[in-house]
Design a protein around this nucleic acid. Structure first.
Lengths: 252, 252
DNA sequence: CCAATGTCAATTGTCAACAATTGGACAAAG
DNA sequence: CTTTGTCCAATTGTTGACAATTGACATTGG
């Protein structure tokens, strides 16, 4: 739970009308969010208001607002008068999250395909090229490659025309996955073969979006996440006693 | 914006260990949420902290926490130092929300079908029976029927085994739809024919879930929402100048 | 030995006061 | 007639203090 102090106080002197500044509660929420996603907290660990307050050099008011934000984003469980506890992510939860993310990302891909956003396709193309280059270069670590792939997903989520969807994909618990699952773990998952396969998957997706084949784009991206889900479960089951039921292992 | 005062103060004397009590910020968030969904606020209307504080007889602290909750749920836009404003729901937003809800509810139906939850099927059966009875009884208003149908959706959302999904469906903006769209409006939408058709749709869904045909259940429930989306847009375009692009009008 | 009860420090919940910023109103200048 | 500058009331942001509750531990009685 050791995190660098934020540069909280210095408020920007000039600001355009309508421009959103980052408030202290938001900065705290984002920072703690990052810490949780990075695995700096253990699942079930308690979060004490005063601790965060002194850590960030503010009073408990802003911290309480930040905690409410984390609660709504599904990163902490909150019990009245008992405090906030970092969510404990079981294998079943991971399956749940992957499934939700799969259908939502599929919808985002569908949206992008229908809108024929050439600018986005170009962006995606360069992103995929980067991932491909990484896959070929022996120097890059599997973790770097995982990051590059995650970046592609982030692009789809951020650029899709459905703003409500973009918000959900940005704010909701789903991204917890990254830190909890992949931290130190892609080593034994993203083998050269798997990397090449992942690049191919995204190439096919790019083609579908460029061709404005929305159903195909939807299907392809959903499959990406279902595959990632199964691979993650397989990898994680090695180090966990957790088991996962078959009901959640949806395909297509 | 006239809403009954909540019975805020009297805190329950006895409570089981682990049982969640409803905190004041949560009660306020829920109440204002209801008010927004009911259309008691106009889109873009400003929410003043002190106003809510005096309305509920508390100080501004709990109100601020409630507002943060509303912000995360997508019900208000928040601008630092300028306050919170109730979201303005355009036709495009409605399409966005319906699309997200369609795929999420489809996933929920898929989940229920795979789990073969006989208890749920029975529950759903009686719910559908109630709706069918309403459709046949001339006495019930279209609004009552709309409520009954919405209740069916709520059952699917609440009872699906994917807890992460259930939380999203419960907390996220989506339900705004109900109040904004259907308030005073099912009169010219839920004609007897439409009511009968809606009941048939849900009967087919029940059959699919009972038969554990998850893909079919997914498809059917998605269609329910896509149809509802198109109908809502059609109805709303009569009274709005708003137009809606074709990119969001996904099918299947 | 175990369950019920009492006590207490730690922590959360709420409040009221104060500080800082904003968006108008209004006036003067271009 | 528009722009620029200066006030000011209204509103939001933050704080420190106080009240209430919890969970842990100790004590008591069976």
């Amino acid at each position: 739970m050791n995190q660098d102090l934020l540069d909280l106080k210095p408020k920007p002197a000039i600001r355009r009308r309508g421009q959103r500044t980052r408030t202290i509660p938001e900065q705290i929420a984002d920072d703690v969010s990052r810490a949780i996603v990075n695995g700096d907290y253990r699942g079930g660990e308690r979060i004490r208001e005063q601790e965060l307050a002194t850590l960030y050099g503010v009073s408990r008011g802003p911290v309480r607002e930040a905690i409410r934000t984390l609660q709504e984003r599904g990163l902490v469980n909150f019990f009245p008068r008992r405090g906030a506890y970092v969510v404990d992510v079981t294998l079943d939860t991971i399956v749940e999250i992957f499934n939700v993310r799969a259908v939502l990302m599929g919808l985002a891909a569908r949206d992008l395909a229908r809108r024929k956003d050439v600018e986005f396709v170009a962006e995606l193309h360069t992103g995929i090229a980067e991932a491909r280059a990484m896959a070929k270069a022996k120097a890059t670590t599997p973790l770097d490659f995982a990051r590059a792939i995650a970046h592609l997903g982030g692009m789809v989520a951020a650029r899709c025309g459905n703003k409500h969807l973009a918000r959900l994909l940005r704010d909701q618990l789903d991204h917890t996955l990254w830190g909890i699952i992949w931290r130190d773990r892609p080593l034994d998952f993203f083998t050269p073969q798997r990397q090449a396969a992942a690049v191919r998957e995204w190439e096919k997706l790019e083609a579908a979006i460029a061709a404005a084949d929305d159903s195909e784009a939807d299907l392809l991206l959903r499959r990406v996440f279902f595959n990632a889900r199964d691979a993650a479960i397989k990898t994680l089951q090695k180090t966990r006693s957790d088991k996962v039921g078959p009901a959640g292992l949806i395909r297509d």
